[in-house]
């Protein structure tokens, strides 16, 4: 166990979906700042940092999720920040979408987010402080054809987060969402270029997001001074 004295000035951060892409970037970014990061994903992690601990799990596996939180409670006795990044996408016409795909997307994007928020809130409430950052997508507000299920799952995350922020306010916990735009990650590797360009055209700032655009907003939500910012969604790129 890391001595609580040593970690007093570090933040205890939990990030889901850290094996690649945005999650991996954020885990390395916050480790680099000296914070203690716990990550998880269905695959092994390549992150090599003394401040990083990885858990192999599916975010919808309630038993495993609880074990992860028990580890955090036993080792650090607190959690300062939760970033719910894990998510899956699928593009298809509604008439061609199998219900199995719908269930899978909602389980990972919504139920997984819910489970982590619930367990994080239990830990954070003891400390009367905490920051929950859930990832949504500009697809939710842009309502683009072909993204009905993915966008609906992200709309669910946004509405859930708004209500969560109200329920957790008395415990000193804020909850916000970031509406992500396409980043060059695995999540969009199978999406046709024309579809991505179509989405970028609908943004105010018509470009791919960089990882630093995302950490800029997570930094903002995490700042001590942001304890008055809750229940909000910040769409990258402008919608």
């Amino acid at each position: 166990m890391i001595s609580p004295v040593n970690i007093k000035n570090q933040k205890i951060i939990l990030i889901t979906g850290t094996s690649k892409g945005i999650g991996k970037y954020l885990a390395e970014y916050y480790c680099g700042k000296g914070h203690v990061v716990t990550g998880c994903s269905r695959n092994d992690s390549e992150i090599k940092n003394d401040n990083y601990t990885h858990f192999l799990l599916d975010v919808t596996d309630e038993k495993k999720v609880k074990e992860l939180f028990l580890h955090i409670r036993k080792n650090y006795d607190r959690l300062d920040v939760l970033i719910n990044n894990a998510g899956i996408a699928s593009m298809n016409h509604v008439m061609l979408t199998p219900s199995e795909t719908v269930n899978k997307i909602f389980e990972t994007n919504f139920t997984g987010t819910f489970l982590f928020c619930r367990e994080a809130a239990k830990l954070m409430s003891k400390n009367k402080s905490g920051r929950i950052i859930n990832f949504s997508s500009v697809a939710a507000d842009l309502a683009i054809e072909g993204e009905a299920i993915y966008a609906a799952s992200k709309s669910a995350v946004e509405t859930f987060t708004k209500i969560l922020s109200k329920e957790l306010s008395a415990f000193g916990i804020t909850a916000n969402t970031i509406g992500l735009t396409p980043v060059k990650t695995d999540l969009i590797k199978n999406v046709p270029v024309v579809k991505i360009n179509n989405l970028l055209e609908k943004l105010t700032v018509k470009r791919f997001a960089e990882f630093t655009d995302i950490s800029n907003v997570t930094d903002f939500f995490i700042r001590e001074e942001s304890n008055f910012i809750t229940g909000q969604n910040i769409n990258l790129g402008g919608v």
Partner: peptide, 16 residues
């Protein structure tokens, strides 16, 4: 109601 929520969470953790 918040006190009850707090108690339930605390009891779960104490049982653990």
């Amino acid at each position: 109601s918040l006190g009850l929520v707090n108690l339930i969470v605390t009891v779960e953790q104490r049982v653990q």
